[in-house]
Design a binder for these strands. Sequence first.
RNA 1: GUGGAUGUAGCUCAGUGGUAGAGCCCCGGAUUGUGGCUCCGGUGGUCGUGGGUUCGAUCCCCAUCAUCCACCCCA
Length: 429
Amino acid sequence: MSKKIQAIRGMNDLLPEQSPVWQYVESCVRALMETYGYAEIRTPILEQTALFARSIGEVTDIVEKEMYTFNDRNGDSLTLRPEGTASCVRAAMENGLLHNQTQRLWYQGPMFRHERPQKGRYRQFHQVGVEAYGLEGPDIDAEVILLTARLWRRLGLNEHVTLELNSLGSSAARAAYRETLVTYFEQHRDVLDEDSSRRLSTNPMRILDSKNPDMAPILADAPRLMDHLDDESREHFEQLTTLLDSVGIEYRINPRLVRGLDYYSRTVFEWTTDALGSQGTVCAGGRYDGLVEQLGGKPTPAVGFAMGMERLILLLETLDVIPDDAQPGLDVYIVGQGEQIHGTTLQLGETLRNALPGIRLQVHCGGGGFRSQIKKADRSGAQLALLLGEEEIANDMVTIKFLRNDREQVSLPQDKLTEQLPELLGRSF
RNA sequence: GUGGAUGUAGCUCAGUGGUAGAGCCCCGGAUUGUGGCUCCGGUGGUCGUGGGUUCGAUCCCCAUCAUCCACCCCA
């Protein structure tokens, strides 16, 4: 048994090498949300356990065996959020955001599920989500789908993800269909595999999702959800597909698409890819018109989605579509050596940052010879090295060495530096 | 929770029943003030952990932990 202290299983450190990619995606997301006028909401990572039990569903895997739940010091049962929607609804209700008004919100942050880690699935993972409240028409469904589609375009993923669409109907229609389905499968109990038999009592609609080829014949003849929709849901769905057609969004209607969380109703959708192995769902969402009421609020229509950051970034890396400028890099690296150097390099660094606030500059620390300092300047990725040695200091000069081309190094007076640097670097500050 | 694979240097990996090696990285030197290319040298390992077999285990056996992949489930 190892005594080494290490990270919790399935909870990863995000290392310096990785953070630029995350920041790139995060900034794309933020800009996108602003484009559509969605406002960010931030909620606590911990909630009362009952919030998730009531919203996600008591008998779902998430609630039954995947939540990080523990007792607070006063005995309250608390849970690390396994998803964002429940917290969002709670916060919106609690702060009066749903009182007689509509809301378009987004959130971003870590979620926690105690699952076995694998590719694209971790115990602490990060989601970006959108929630729109108070709008019942299919136009808002179309809008959130358009929003995701625009993100794929901006990230360069649009050729690599496909939209799957379905409707679960109203909760009443869904419940009725569920009964029909259970009856059907009970008549064929002998051909159900182990997983499906278990689902019959937990989540019968999931049986339709079975990957077991032996199940294909019985699934093909199963009653179809689409044939059991209530009229309103059918109309809603037809309008949605018409809207998507009119704005040029391609989709595939997948009658077997079922969402895992109990609160979904009517529209459900998923963006999937085949480039990520078995965890191919990058983004998923739909309507949950009954959720607000279920959590004690007034009946409020709602639609939203969540996407997995790890999966998104994995996909970007797999497809090699991360732009080079996602890496920040350095403009200038200041090197200094000699008896008289003292604080000169640090001073010069501050002077330049004062004059050129956007400059990306690092001052060499830790001493060493010119040779090793310049080697570090090179490896820092900086465009220029500024050299301050005894000669330069004696004459108030500085030597500029070009690290990325063969241009001859030049020396100039230190007080000319701030006016020369923008030109030498080919950018303004 | 179930199944399979894998744990040797910071990283990628060789290797053998007689207590370990390469490449990359890092540091120093060739160049006492000049990076990239080259050459030379150096730092760095409880061979995941614990137990068993053995004269002797990094290697064989068992357990355990971790990682990866798949199932389940989900973003």
